[in-house]
Nucleic acid binder design. Structure first.
Lengths: 126, 126, 126, 126
DNA sequence: GTGGTCTAGACCACC
DNA sequence: GTGGTCTAGACCACG
């Protein structure tokens, strides 16, 4: 099932990128699977309080990346293979882990302290 | 000693924000201390290959936040107390780790898996 | 009605300051009143032959001074009270006349001569 | 006699232009006449608390406009004819009067009101 | 179409 | 050489 209920828009990153990331995260987490129908641009735009063009931009980019199939006049459906999902998961997670490590190293944090911090803050966030 | 050798610019966030973050990280890590001279805008701009104005924007904002002092014709110097450093460290670590934990949760990653990944990728980064 | 047809840019003062002054003058003269829509940045920029950012800078400062309101996607509108207009008028006239009187004094011009000159050149300007 | 005692630097216009204007005003007012020696760049710079380069820039421009004669190692002297003084006076005064008229017109002020205001504010300014 | 932001280039005063 | 400012161009989200 594809939903946008859990997406909360935040300030610093562009909205269409947040939407793209939300869908990719759903693919990796398994909440969105091959064949699922995406909500229409209008539904998403009213739900998020965002301009339809912004949704269109996100959908279009996902289509160009090969994760979506759009028929004019019909709903868009997710088109993705198991291999694509696995590759996507590896890529996204590596990026995030790499990012967290880089940040912590920049602050002069050691690996042991990092493990403690990650464990400590895991439950807190939202 | 203040240096920008370890700063590598990335695509998604504005350059001046990356510079601000780099300096704040240096303050937190202790590589930049009270009284240090910052490299001039031109030095940094040629080193990073960006316009001097971008550095100027970063320095100006840091000055407004109370971390450094600029006088025309003289180099900018870091002006910061121990308390400011501590508060900054707490704030930055919570922000960064929190946002990345949120990302991993969105991918369906469990805490144990995250800790393993962190341990595995720690040495890779650089 | 708000217009920029009567604004001619001159060399010595920054363009954005000239725009600010022109709008303030319009407020004082009563040609721009509360609720009026300002022309868009692009309209003004093409009319004056300058970059839209220059207009943006002027509008933004006027907004910070409390004379107009901007919402993304909609035109900016003038928001100003009678009291603000009166205070602005007094301030601007005193500033401008004072500075010019000072110049004339520096040239050794006496008051009587100045009055004659003012009377003589009044019609010429435009 | 040439002096810079009456020159007070103000914020918005470039200093070297203020110096140029001050000397031109002296020429028009008759306080600086043909053959007068100008104070050295160093004297002026210490008196005004300004960098010698700034004075140099002003002197150089005045020299290029034909009002000054500089000999290397000697003091600069004013070189100006009666005709130049008269032309300069006419030009500068017309500019100022034109400027004041334009400003007042922009505020919707009528000629009669302008004469009253000029008369009223004449004594006030310093 | 609208306003908002980031980056860039040129120029300024100053040491 | 230093920091500071004005103008410009490109891009963004939004209506």
């Amino acid at each position: 099932m594809v939903t946008f209920d859990t997406l909360e828009l935040k300030g610093d990153t562009p909205i269409y990128l947040q939407i793209i990331h939300h869908i990719k995260a759903g693919l990796v987490a398994g909440t969105m699977v091959h064949g699922d129908e995406l909500p229409s641009r209008r539904q998403v735009s009213t739900l998020l309080g965002v301009n339809p063009n912004t949704i269109q931009k996100a959908y279009k980019q996902l289509e160009e990346e090969g994760f979506l199939l759009s028929h004019t006049g019909a709903k868009s459906t997710i088109q993705i293979t198991e291999e694509q999902v696995f590759a996507l998961k590896t890529l996204l997670i590596e990026e995030d882990i790499g990012s967290i490590i880089e940040h912590l190293k920049a602050f002069g944090v050691e690996k042991e302290e990092a493990l403690v911090l990650l464990d400590k803050f895991w439950e807190v966030g939202s």
